[in-house]
Design a protein around this nucleic acid. Structure first.
Length: 354
DNA sequence: GATACGTGGCG
DNA sequence: TCGCCAAGTAT
């Protein structure tokens, strides 16, 4: 038995609290073992993403592609389009790649250990632990930002992140009970999101208030320490909405790698370090009007101000384009799979919702 | 090991 | 308005 699992130990205290206070979430099942496919899908969606943001994406994906085989058989563009708006699009590319490995090479079954899961695309240390513990009952830790914060406070670990990661992971693993490791993982995350919050933690309601060293030392709220972030540089650029006589809009699929890799965008330039490529002729052969409202958007490592232009007059049906450009009917623009920034740009250019 | 990689909510 | 933060991974 791990140290935390003894009667009155931290794991027992936490699981007791979890049974009474844990959140009901779409990907959690009350009875029996959850479907590894659903666990994997939810964990990938939840990487660096809030529960609220994942919202309907999870249920929509599960309804549309109920099995890993179904997802593997789906065209990649459809998976990327369904992911549009969630961000970190490498996750969607890796999700599809992972589904194909599981479906084609592993007989449709996910590996049952963290060590094996870790080898699959898009599955790192956290996700491997989460799937192994939740879906297969392996007694391994799933250390996300919640767990890091909770553990750092619990043991008053003053080493700043990310240097503290190894120690935090070691402590977390020691606490994992042999029984209910999956519930323990989820309980730790619920504790971090409901009680042991980044600011103003509710220590008096915490099941670990007695053994918590950070609380005893009066330093819980100031942990974990972190190295300061770099300021985001500001970038600017232009995006053009080119309308055809029949109402179709000119779009472009971005290269597979890098920023918004594989996603669809309005033709744009000047902001992403990419060479400007235009279909046939430059857009400056056309007459554009600049839209009143610029688009502002914040990426992980820079903030963006995008000037928005639209054609003063629609172009002819004869305006032929080659890949990666294509014409998208206005009525299907909403389903084109525009990432957040490009959806904003389209809305600004059209002056109406998609 | 540092950097790239989205988006939305909150104080 | 703005910085912080979020169920991290890949390179």
């Amino acid at each position: 038995m791990s140290p935390g699992a003894e009667p009155g130990g931290p794991a027992r205290l936490l699981l007791h609290w979890y049974d009474a206070n844990g959140r009901q979430l779409p990907w959690r099942v009350r009875s029996g073992r959850p479907d590894p496919y659903a666990v994997w899908l939810s964990e990938v969606m939840l990487q660096q993403t809030t529960v609220a943001a994942v919202g309907r994406y999870f249920t929509d994906f599960l309804r549309r592609w109920p099995t890993v085989e179904a997802l593997a058989a789906a065209p990649r563009e459809e998976v990327l389009a369904a992911w549009a708006g969630l961000g970190y699009y490498a996750r969607a590319r890796n999700l599809h790649a992972c589904a194909q490995v599981v479906a084609k090479e592993l007989g449709g079954r996910f590996p049952s250990t963290a060590q094996e899961l870790r080898k699959l695309p898009g599955i790192g240390p956290y996700t491997a632990g989460a799937i192994a513990a939740i879906a297969f009952g392996e007694p391994v830790a799933a250390v996300d930002a919640n767990a890091e914060r909770v553990i750092a406070r619990f043991r008053a670990i003053e080493t700043p992140l990310p240097d503290a990661k190894p120690e935090i992971r070691r402590v977390a693993q020691e606490l994992v009970p042999l029984a209910r490791p999956g519930d323990f993982a989820q309980a730790l995350m619920d504790l971090g999101s409901m009680i042991c919050t980044p600011r103003r933690p509710d220590c008096m309601a915490c099941p670990w208030r007695e053994p918590c060293v950070g609380l005893a030392k009066g330093m819980a709220e100031r942990l974990p320490r972190k190295v300061p972030r770099r300021a985001k540089p500001a970038r600017e650029g232009d995006a053009w909405l080119i309308l055809r006589e029949d109402g179709a809009v000119l779009l472009r699929r971005r290269p597979d790698k890098g920023l918004l890799g594989g996603m669809v965008e309005l033709p744009s330039a000047g902001w992403d370090g990419m060479e400007t490529v235009w279909p046939g002729r430059t857009p400056f052969d056309l007459a554009f009007v600049r839209c009143k409202e610029d688009v502002r958007h914040v990426f992980t490592h820079f903030s963006l101000m995008l000037r928005i232009w639209r054609t003063e007059y629609p172009v002819s049906q004869n305006f032929a384009v080659d890949a990666p450009f294509f014409w998208q009917p206005r009525s299907h623009l909403r389903n084109a799979g525009l990432p957040g920034v490009m959806r904003k740009a389209a809305v600004a250019a059209l002056g109406e919702p998609l």
